[in-house]
Amino acid sequence: MLRVLGTIFMSLAAVVVALPIVIVCSAALNGGRTMFFPPQDSTLARFGEFFISEPVWTRALTNSVIVAIGAATLSVLLAWPIAYRLWKTGSRASALLATLGSIPFAVPPIVFGVGLGFFWSFMGGLGTITAGIISHAVLFLALPLVTISIGLQAIDRAYLDAAATMGATETVTFRTIVLPQTLPYTISGFFFALVLSFNEFIVMFFVSASAFATVTLQIFNSLRNGYTPTMAVAAVAFIAVSIAVFSAVARWGDLPRLMGADQSRS
């Protein structure tokens, strides 16, 4: 009886979580310029508009991809030495550095966005894609920092000792043991940052200063004018990317462990 209740509860939760997404996605099939649910005059024309013919959307999509890939790469490159130092030395200074690096992710994005807006207007980068990439890299630095740290902690210290007794210096050990063993975690961190950067728009709103727009920012900017089915196409594309990325992480990385599940049980 209780088990049945549990199953019903979980299914209900799944339906409620999925419902708005399903509705948005199906709205992408609308033939007209207005959002209807259920969609009217079903067509795939809006997909063509979003991906190919409408310059506003194709430019925004290009910007989204550039910012997301750039920011994810940069945040991984920044997170690696911080996480490695923390793991290697465990010193207070490196712990402080890691904490400072996680602050942007912890404060309300609107506050950090306002701050970055001021920052870039002083630095002269306001409205450039580079500023957007760096801002997102900093904002999501905490993610690769956490996944890489989890990966480093998973390395048995005996591996390092074993490598040393076989003649490996710290550099060689890093290259032959540490790097290969933490690769899945590095990739996970990269993808977490990538997907979140893809979807973020508040910080981007302040940093872009309307000089450029990413897809979500473009939607945000045109919210006042109401939704169009082309925006729903963006939703379809984004949810597809998210599911693909996280499925890949689950397939090649240990997702339950990354999310903090107990390693010993399966």
Partner: peptide, 19 residues
């Protein structure tokens, strides 16, 4: 240091590199 002594060592957990 250990990497210059190069004494072969078998560890309790064996420490075989899984990758």
């Amino acid at each position: 240091p250990a990497h210059r002594r190069k004494f072969g060592m078998v560890f309790q957990s064996f420490a075989l590199f899984p990758h």
